[in-house]
């Protein structure tokens, strides 16, 4: 896995990098923070083509030939796991985007709940339900929970880590700018690294 994006794929002449953003088990706060990039998003749009994203694309299938993939969220269920493996296969550089992808964070708190995913579902949907308690079971529609919620790097190889809950827009920009130039992001100091 290359450490940084050092070349644009395919064809002659400048071609925009193909960027994907993925939302696994997280609160979408990292994507909201991404939107806080405000006018810099226009600069970004000149440099990248967003080919897959819950906030900037309607594509439902993760495409092939992705250069950069920002992954928000931990890996909590079978859908998350399948998408994680798919995006790894189809992306050159994968980034754990935010504390949930980096370390499990809030979604992984369910790992503290004893025993099985079933016990978690019981707690959430039966014991704590005020009315109409029932399990959210719809085979083929509602994905099964994994035994444990895992950080992204526990299931696929990850090239870069961008911590924060969420990473601030400034941190995202400071991370992406060098990466888009083909340089490693300056991951040091509280401004870039502090969790939370």
């Amino acid at each position: 896995m290359s450490g940084a994006v050092d070349e644009a794929p395919g064809g002659a002449g400048p071609q925009r990098l193909r960027l994907a953003t993925v939302w696994l088990a997280g609160c979408s706060g990292c994507h909201m923070s991404f939107l806080d990039l405000d006018e810099w998003l226009f600069d970004l749009a000149r440099q990248v083509e967003i080919v897959y994203s819950p906030i900037a694309s309607d594509t439902k299938i993760f495409p092939a030939g992705v250069d950069l993939c920002l992954v928000e969220g931990a890996v909590a269920n079978t859908d998350n796991l399948a998408l994680a493996q798919q995006l790894r296969d189809r992306s050159r550089v994968v980034i754990s985007f935010g504390d949930c992808a980096v370390g499990g964070n809030v979604p992984a708190l369910r790992n503290l709940w004893d025993a099985s995913p079933q016990a978690v579902l019981n707690r959430g949907y039966m014991e704590l339900a005020d009315r109409s308690a029932q399990h959210p079971r719809a085979i083929g529609i509602v994905p099964e929970l994994l035994p444990q919620v895992l950080p992204l790097h526990a299931v696929i190889a990850v090239d870069h880590y961008l911590p924060g809950c969420p990473p601030s827009a400034e941190r995202i920009r400071a991370f992406l700018e060098p990466l888009l130039r083909g340089e490693p992001p300056p991951m040091q100091g509280a401004a870039m690294l502090r969790f939370g």
Binding site: V106, A108, L109, H153, Q188, L193, G196
Partner: peptide
Amino acid sequence: GNHVCAFCVANGACELQDAAVAVGMDHS
């Protein structure tokens, strides 16, 4: 341990958080 900075009382005033920055830890 179970260190979840996002909703910890000490978020921003935590020496473990500071230590992670000091040693350049971006993930475990």
